[in-house]
Design a protein around this nucleic acid. Structure first.
Lengths: 333, 333
DNA sequence: TTGTATGCGTTATCAC
DNA sequence: GTGATAACGCATACAA
């Protein structure tokens, strides 16, 4: 049994396919009578529009792609989920592409998305060095960047949490609670957001007249991050506070420090970033900077639709979303 | 500038579109010479196949849908990510649909997926009561169920962790460590997997000659689950062990019990389910049942491709994936 | 207000 | 080996 097409509807309701199409899309003129008739037949047959045909004809796929480094990261999952929800309400389906921070994979995904002629693209975070090789062709797919500074600022809209502010406040929280020698613990790979966070950390030190910077870079791919942490803190016994560039790293610290006899927050105070659910239940609970994933998602979709439907829409904008420091036990006595 | 089509390639390489198509799909006969020429032109122009046209023509979309209740749940995210990765390697793109455990949303997604003529469908978990209203038409989309018992077993392949075994072992772990009066804490909504876990809990009690069942059902939508827990344990002071039907609930317990003066594992022992990353870092660390997400994903894709490409492939099968109890501090002294 | 005809890019059938 | 062409389902320009 073949699926019913617009042709069948036309036959069954005694009109032409053109009229059916007009009724379906509520576009052009037709009598109320035919409208009723056609809609009734559609109802009866359970007709479903064929998206492939429509896409081909209109050169529009009603789908958008999302490039995300790691969907099992809670923050990313959260944002992606919200974006997908809003887009679905607007009639778009979402193709989520998990790049696993792999350049080749990202390229492969971009190629696939181009093939599928996605109407738009949302790029979330991702390594800084490999810069979005799309728009090779003239027919550029509109895209929005979240937390990933675009190489070509004027071709997109850049939406980002205020990582700088978050890091600054996190660091000040440490200093205000008696920390004298803070360290920033981050991963090796560099993203736009980690750069901003580092800057915020540094500026907070400067403001408080601390001129020696402690930076510990971890390779989280390798499974020895716990050991690296132990080594570092055994060597730098003066360190009494940590700004962890994300909660995942903060959790590693929470696990590793007690093993070398350091108590949190008594000996070392910690503030993380992302306010993942773990932060509420770790021991001690973790102070952390919360990103506004709702607003990020809303802005991303809103602006994407804008530049999709209106190519003349001004690009090059940067929209900064405030963050919020959530104080818990790890930074206070 | 329009995108280059197969027609352009034909013109540029001095052959017909038919030949180009044959070369591209490596299907039918053509001389080595033309192959070279065509491939070269394709390379030069950066030609990309138009999926909409191909889909329309072949009535195949090279995409599959995934229905998942909540992508920000770590276990689901993990499985989805792995499925997506395998499918991408096989040339399929994945449309991830977050149903938010909402019946209407699920229906809307199914309709959309049908419109897009997805080649297959993977359904993960989800409420038991609303049973997959697809295949209204003859043209049924092949689908695989993970952790969701299909209403029509003979139309699909059912892949599931051994929830029963996991719950049984978790409960025995409690009993073997001195628990006399265990309780199962679960949510109100019922899924195939929670049913199985409940059964495992009960059978473990029976085997150990415990005939009184304690069951605490929480409504996790409501934000008062912590309070509910406190009330329950104040009322049932004899309870000294909990099988939490998932880690999320276990974490709630870990937070709530100390507030009423109960220490874990001294006063109450706990085992969870899912082995989320939190389990490693909570205080105390949480014993939990780990599902084999890799294997679940592999089996799902493998079997889906099988029934997609071979409609005669025997259905009605059930594949049970073993789970593993990971012992940590919350269940031992 | 409605119908006819065309083309979107591709694959498959047939003829050469 | 290769080319011409029909067909997939739909939207739309143009006629009527």
């Amino acid at each position: 049994m073949k699926k019913t097409s617009i042709k069948d509807i036309a036959r069954l309701s005694g009109v032409s396919v053109a009229t059916v199409s007009r009724v379906i899309n509520n576009n052009g003129r037709f009598s109320e009578e035919t409208r009723q008739k056609v809609l009734q037949v559609i109802e009866e047959t359970g007709y479903q529009m064929n998206f492939s045909a429509k896409s081909l004809r209109m050169n529009k796929s009603f789908s958008v792609g999302i490039l995300v480094p790691d969907i099992s990261n809670h923050f990313f999952a959260d944002v992606v989920q919200k974006i997908e929800e809003i887009l679905f309400e607007k009639g778009y389906s979402t193709i989520i592409c998990n790049t696993a921070r792999n350049f080749e994979k990202e390229q492969a995904y971009l190629k696939m998305l181009e093939s599928k002629t996605v109407d738009g693209l949302i790029v979330i975070s991702g390594a800084d060095e490999f810069g979005l090789h799309l728009n090779d062709t003239e027919k550029a797919t509109p895209y929005i960047c979240i937390d990933r500074e675009p190489k070509e600022r004027d071709k997109t809209i850049f939406i980002s949490s205020n990582h700088y502010q978050g890091a600054f406040e996190a660091t000040e929280e440490l200093l205000q609670n008696g920390v004298k020698t803070p360290v920033i613990v981050m991963h090796k790979r560099i993203s736009s957001s980690s750069k901003e966070r580092l800057k915020g950390f540094r500026d907070a030190l400067k403001k408080n007249s601390i001129f020696e910077e402690n930076i510990l870079k971890l390779d989280l791919q390798a499974e020895d991050s716990g050991v690296r942490i132990e080594q570092y803190f055994k060597q730098h016994t003066e360190v009494d506070g940590v700004f962890a560039i994300n909660d995942s790293i903060a959790m590693e610290l929470l696990l590793a420090l007690p093993r070398i006899g350091k108590q949190v927050p008594e000996d070392v105070k910690i503030v993380g970033f992302d306010d993942t659910p773990q932060a509420r239940i770790s021991h001690p609970t973790l102070s952390s900077v919360r990103q506004n994933s709702d607003l990020l998602a809303e802005l991303a979709v809103e602006n994407l639709l804008e530049i999709m439907n209106n190519p003349a829409f001004p690009k090059g904008l940067e929209k900064i979303v405030p963050v919020e420091l959530v104080i818990r036990a790890s930074s206070r006595m």
